[in-house]
Design a protein around this nucleic acid. Structure first.
Lengths: 346, 346
DNA sequence: CTGTTAGCGCGTTCAT
DNA sequence: ATGAACGCGCTAACAG
């Protein structure tokens, strides 16, 4: 039997202490207007009664909802990015929980539906703000939330339109570090198996790839867009390796592409790293246990999420928040590029 | 500039139509007490004004919060189960969104903290119900939520105490199908590299493993508990294979263990499947692209989540909900047990 | 300064 | 179909 014994209310506390509800409210919120003695008695009573403010009542009086929203459009759902995504979310939560904020999650099928959700949330006062993920080129979302007056922060920006602040990862620097590593290990023909260029971060990576190629004087650099699927990883790898001259290094945009690619490479009887070196843009447990272990770019998804949450809370507090860039992900060299025995896992 | 032009309220609609708020409320909620003509005019006005009920106001009057909570204790966070978890959540959301429910997420470090969160949520009226995941043996959570009177549903039961309804996956049948497959492919010495037995589902799997071993007359079956980490997968595999006589088949509880295990197997210069067959309890993209591809148990995590959400909503509607068991996961045989050329991905 | 009263916020519900 | 009270906490205005 659940104890549905009526929850204590402010009224109960006030009665018990023998003051008005207003006095109790002041005491509980640390506002002036009550003596220290009274304040203590109220606090005491509140904790004895195990009281907590009714969330809805609070929200009704204009305090926020202590909730931030996150909408996942199903495209952000491809197997390759699920892990990153999950870590981003839990990283956000680590910060939000500490501040007693909750995360409201919604899954939709399209960007249009996503915007509909923002409208709903705004009208119903369900969230104080939202986090935008997986930005595309010409993405309508920043404009939409700005127009709605829905506080927002972009995870993975910056916003080209500049209307919504963002926390982003320095894709250019990350790509540069990969290219530098490949240059140092003697590669002059590199192929980049990217995700769909419609994604802003993919687009930026491709640009950085070409820029790095120019900067480092690596003449033969080509990028091949995929839809992030294993099938695409397989075909793209095959066609890249059929190029003449054949690339000597392949950069994969995520784990799934990479693992599929490794399969394709093997099928062509090429050796890693002797014939082709491999780098993956995301370090996962799989990278360390494959033979050979894969050189990978390690990002701190949880830390990223924490920063995102932190900044969003600043936005909610009414502070001006500038675009922020995470520190550059580190490249973890392993046997797939350096050819030495695999670094021990952990 | 965000349009903070005051949200329309019931008052606005009532005024515009020229009726009382009460009448408007009845009309909007499809309750009797208004003429059909009035109802239409109210509906019309509401949509013109783009009105939606203030969520907090609704919740305040006793209607629920249209929110279900999910707490992730960090242990449920080990890399091996993140993917399953993420899919469970999105599967839940698919159902919840459709019914306009939101998912409230919280990340904590321990079961105790998790229970604290339930207390908070209850006191603050923040959620209508919760989903319990990752049940342990002697888990205090079902009792706790029952005592709190917090509607709940267990994802991955059944609840040994029987106080909270559950949706569960038939681990016994799944294990039986794996064992049958191994028996058919000629194995008589099998090792099961499991997760921590403190977890209820792991415990059940181990039991089923031993039962299946007896049922099928496979004499030499041993289980080795791990903490799900890659390191543990490596050591456990090594020590299992050092047994005399050596097992001819290994069952891994998740992807990380399996991939680590494959590494250890290779290090011992054993061939898969000629010397050791490998089965993984979770089909992931990695299983299909490894060489050889790994035989794996395919579960529908998203469907599982959908069922969980569905049943929880029934609980919230006050219906009695019986324990429910998902259809048995299917074993996908691949080269790691049957020794044929790998099935093409997709 | 300490504390009270009244009224708000928004939608629901009960007598009338 | 209406006015009024209610749910719960916050806060402006007011009194001791």
């Amino acid at each position: 039997m659940g104890n549905d014994a009526r929850r204590p209310t402010l009224r109960d506390i006030a009665d018990r202490v023998g003051v008005s509800e207003a006095a109790a409210s002041f005491a509980l919120n640390g506002k002036p207007g009550v003596s220290e003695a009274t304040r203590q008695r109220v606090l005491q009573a509140a904790s004895e009664l195990n009281w907590a403010p009714h969330h809805a009542a609070r929200a009704l009086t204009g305090a926020g909802t202590a909730t931030v929203g996150l909408v996942i459009a199903r495209s952000a759902q491809d197997v390759g990015s699920e892990l990153f995504f999950h870590r981003l979310m839990t990283g956000m939560q680590a910060v939000l929980s500490r501040r007693r904020y909750a995360l409201l999650l919604q899954v939709v099928d399209s960007v249009d539906e996503e915007i509909d959700v923002y409208h709903m949330w705004k009208r119903e006062h369900r969230v104080d703000g939202v986090v935008l993920v997986d930005l595309r080129r010409d993405d309508p979302r920043p404009e939409a939330v700005a127009e709605l007056g829905l506080p927002a922060l972009i995870a993975g920006g910056p916003d080209p339109a500049g209307v919504v602040p963002s926390v982003s990862i320095d894709d250019a620097a990350a790509m540069a570090s990969i290219m530098r590593h490949l240059k140092e290990t003697g590669h002059e023909r590199i192929a980049y198996l990217s995700g769909p260029i419609a994604l802003l971060h993919v687009h930026r990576r491709v640009e950085s790839f070409l820029r790095a190629s120019a900067d480092l004087g690596i003449a033969d650099c080509r990028s091949h867009a995929t839809d992030f699927s294993a099938g695409a990883g397989d075909t793209a790898t095959t066609s890249a390796l059929l190029g003449d001259p054949r690339p000597t290094a392949l950069i994969y945009d995520n784990e799934v592409l990479a693992v599929a690619g490794v399969g394709a490479i093997r099928r062509m009887s090429l050796r890693i790293p002797e014939d082709v070196a491999v780098v993956v843009w995301e370090d996962t447990p799989v990278c360390t246990v494959l033979q050979p272990a894969l050189t990978a770019l390690r990002r701190d998804a949880a830390g990223f999420g924490a920063d995102v949450a932190e900044r969003l809370l600043q936005v909610l507090a009414g502070e001006k928040v500038a675009d922020f860039e995470e520190r550059v992900p580190t490249l973890v060299p392993r046997a797939s590029t350096v050819g030495e025995p695999p670094v021990c896992a952990d």
